[in-house]
Design a protein around this nucleic acid. Sequence first.
DNA 1: ACTACTAAGGTTTTT
DNA 2: CCTTAGTAGT
Length: 770
Amino acid sequence: MQNLLHNLNPEQLAAVTLPAQSALILAGAGSGKTRVLTTRIAWLIQTGQVSPSGIMAVTFTNKAAKEMLTRLSAMLPVSTRGMWIGTFHGLCNRFLRTHYRDCALPQTFQILDSQDQLSMIKRLLKANNIDDEKYPPKNLMYFINNAKDQGLRANRVEAHDPIERKMVELYELYDNQCQREGVVDFAELLLRAYELLERNQPLREHYQARFKHILVDEFQDTNDLQYNLLKLLAGHGQQVAGALFAVGDDDQSIYAFRGANVGNMSAFEREFRVENLIKLEQNYRSHGHILDSANHLIANNSKRLGKNLRTDAGHGEPVRIYEASSDLEEAQWIIEEAKSLMAEGALRREIAILYRSNAQSRVIEHALFAAGLPYTVYGGQRYFQRAEVKHAIAYLQLMDNPHNDSAFLRVVNFPTRGIGMRSIEALQAAAEQYGISLYAAVPYVAGKSGSSLNSFVKLVEGARFETQQLALPETVRLVLEASGLLQHYQNEKEGADRIENLEQMVNAATQFVQEEGFGQGAPAYMGPKAQASAGELILDGDGTEIIDADIPLNTIMSPLSAFLSHASLEAGDAQAQAGQDALQLMTVHSAKGLEFDAVFITGLEEGLFPHESSSREMDGVDEERRLMYVAITRARKRLYMSFTQTRMLHGQTRYNMKSRFFDELPEDALKWISPRVQSHWFGNKKSAWDDAKFSSGGSDNKIAQQIAQKAASGGPGWRIGESVEHAKFGEGVIVNIEGGGSNARAQINFGKAGMKVLDLSVAKLERVAR
DNA sequence: ACTACTAAGGTTTTT
DNA sequence: CCTTAGTAGT
């Protein structure tokens, strides 16, 4: 145990060894929160305070869960089996699989990803003759998910207008349809679990008694439903209450837009009467200037729980700031700078290029490609989301649960087998009439299309029959062949990649079978009847049996069902990641939780970062600031920030002001490495990698020339793109100039004060040198 | 059934 | 500007 706790700093040690009570750990960026979390679990078990089965640890991503398991098994001699460690969704899935009867789900219920959910909603609208102009499918999806994330069923959602009333109606129809098909969306996994626990007292009490310690990672990202679920599991307000150990950082709350509620932190503190609040403020990641910048910036947010990071590392390098004339030039500068970093010995994978929105990556990618630098863009298509993989999955889904209409529609005519729109419409009509799934409706469709449909059904049935005795990887292989998918892509000219992805699925299945204990030597799945004897049985007063969900998944689920939920719940990063040494490109959001030696934060312009849509939302800019805080704290040794005067967005050149966040950084931690006083349109070709060597003079770029020409018609001296100061509106950028001479009017973007059109002969404008 | 065109929409994202 | 989805034409 000694070596378990050594090397912890006093705050970490205090957190790890807290008594079994509710605790809130405010863990700053780079303060070792995963370490605290895992060491606490190990400590609890090693000191005999709890057995592994009394532990539940919840994360948001599979990656975090995996990381925790890995570290834990390195620390502990005992098996991590029996512990509930996973994502909210993963754990709820496990729970619902075990108690599928009690929550009225088929044993083979399947999980819709967002794609499936959206297409299902589109289908629903069509089937009910709803105008999708009036009710955009995306809005409806957002509406439904939002309600579910708040724990609200259709009958409890308040409608304020006719539109909403209709949406509530559609929400209900949607849920019914899901129920008929035996599918659940992501939010539903949590809501079902919550409802089951709430409704079923013996079950609730069983789990409350079981989980002595519930540990939650990234608590600031929990939504209302997740918090309520935790409350229920921890037995909040009960005699037998588990200890809820929440770790989070309110300054890194960047997911409000998808329902996360930072308020849960203070709610938790209040409702659980938290006496143990520990702040981890010692940062082990970044050098001083970087950390100062982060602290200084985030101090501009109100409503903080309060925290200031410190480091023992020295000041280190200053934060370098660069002003580019265009997004292209910004990209060019990044490349030069990255090259010189690498010349100094920096590893490519230790250099990250961050941006606020994905659209920004293109210009950078182009430049990187032209320069011949290897790079990886994160957050692209996930493995299990690729069309060809989804097709194969759909066949497997139909074999496991033929009532999944989404799966049916996806592959009924893919590869094409002569089942066109007319056949489908006839089928949908029949399904509608009898209130059954498309698959079940096939026998009711007569005629020619009926026979093609019949052969499709035979194909699925045949595959199901033939794979009964096969192991999962062989099942997958057979389906790839029997479905005709492999054949189909072989005939396609660009099909090689797709075939490779399909082949990869067999590997994914093999790996899954091994990792999840479906391999040889594992207890065989013996069907629903056998499962009662597999786990411990508890009988309540009514004689209802409660099976503890501790029994391994492989005894309650067929390998196929398990693999299918795996495919829905895990994007398949393991399949996608090649992991060679390359520059790392990603959004700031996806950089959360990562760290790099050198970080570029790009596009720091008003309207982009902070994003313009943030100003419309309540506390929107605060969230953008937290996002900036996350970005800054990713860097260990080197931090660069850049902004540009012109940027192509949606096909139009935009003239943005530099981000307000620059005003919120400590001057003495910064180094402006581009000329600050300069007419940027004429002159100054910058040699970016050498801070001192800035010469004026040089060639204009094309954009500058165009703009200069366009601006020639403007008033004396004023140019598009120029920064100006107005007594009332403050600093702004001239976006456009109309008319000429004394009639000249300028459209000026004043950022915070908005867009104004001013008469140049009247308005008092000052030139701003920057 | 497949190709070719047109229209719309374009923060952030995991499960 | 550029991608994607949906539709019209062959």
